[in-house]
Structure formats: C-alpha cells, structure tokens
C-alpha cells in the first residue's frame, strides 16, 4: 500500500501525455494548415468526409461505394460513378467555395468550402 498514491505510473503518464499531444495536434494542425486552402465536404448518405483540395490524386471512399473522386489543381470532381444518369460526372471539376456536385442516385454531395472563414462567401448558391 506504500505505493498506493501512484494512480498512474511514470510510463503510463508518458503514454497518456503522448496521446494527448498527438490528439491535440490532430485537432489544431488541420486548422492551421488549411488556412486559405479550399476543402471539399463530401457527404455520402449519412457520412461526412472532408478532403483537402491541395492534395492532388484519385481516391475512392468506403462510405461512397465505388465512386471515384479526383483532386487536381485545387479542384475536385467525381471521375467515375455507377449512377445511371452521370449528372455528377458531367458537372466536372469544382474548386470555388459554394460550388457543389450532387449525385442523387448514389446520395453523394460534394461542396467546396473555404478553409478560412471568408465573410464574402455567399449564403446560398442557386442554379
């Protein structure tokens, strides 16, 4: 019982601090990095995923079935979709805040939002 006041050993303390620091960094760093960069908010059904538009490349998301997304030159598009009408593919690349791609059959929406909170961005987009 003489060591009873050690609720947490030094080793444990180090590990927990490590977890804390990494977690805090995971929250803070994206905010710092994003700065002025645009991000895309991808909603598939009920899942919401964000993508950094400064990272070019092609990818699929587990939540979005076999839909293929592509980011290039700060813009994103739906490159391939299994939907019948392909309206989403035809929309092409989008990259300015407020623009969006909608795929109704697959329940996917991609909306570009500004990393920095620009007060001049529109309240809604129509068309």
């Amino acid at each position: 019982m003489n060591k009873g006041y050690h609720f947490v050993s030094l080793k444990e303390l180090l590990i927990i601090s490590g977890v804390l620091i990494v977690s805090a960094a995971a929250i803070v760093i994206p905010e710092l990095v994003s700065g002025d960069a645009e991000i895309a908010v991808i909603q598939c059904g009920d899942s919401v995923i964000t993508a950094d538009l400064s990272q070019s490349g092609e990818f699929t998301l587990e939540e979005c079935g076999s839909t293929v997304f592509e980011i290039s030159d700060g813009k994103i598009r739906i490159k391939e979709s299994v939907c019948p009408d392909k309206i989403c593919e035809r929309t092409g690349f989008i990259g300015s805040a407020g623009q969006s791609i909608i795929c109704v059959p697959e329940r996917i929406s991609v909306t570009v939002t500004s990393g920095s909170d620009k007060s001049d961005s529109a309240d809604a987009v129509v068309g």
């Binding site: 092409g92 809604a124 987009v125 129509v126 068309g127």
Partner: peptide, 21 residues
C-alpha cells in the same frame, strides 16, 4: 436576419462553367 446583420447573398451559377456568374 443573418447573425452578422448583413443582407443575404445568393450566388447565381454560371451555366457554362458551374462557377459563379
């Protein structure tokens, strides 16, 4: 009323590019 007290801004899409007209 918008939280910032400003009027609403609506962007009209450019039919050609999908950007803002």
């Amino acid at each position: 009323n918008k939280p910032d007290g400003e009027r609403f801004t609506v962007a009209v899409r450019d039919p050609e590019t999908g950007g803002t007209l």
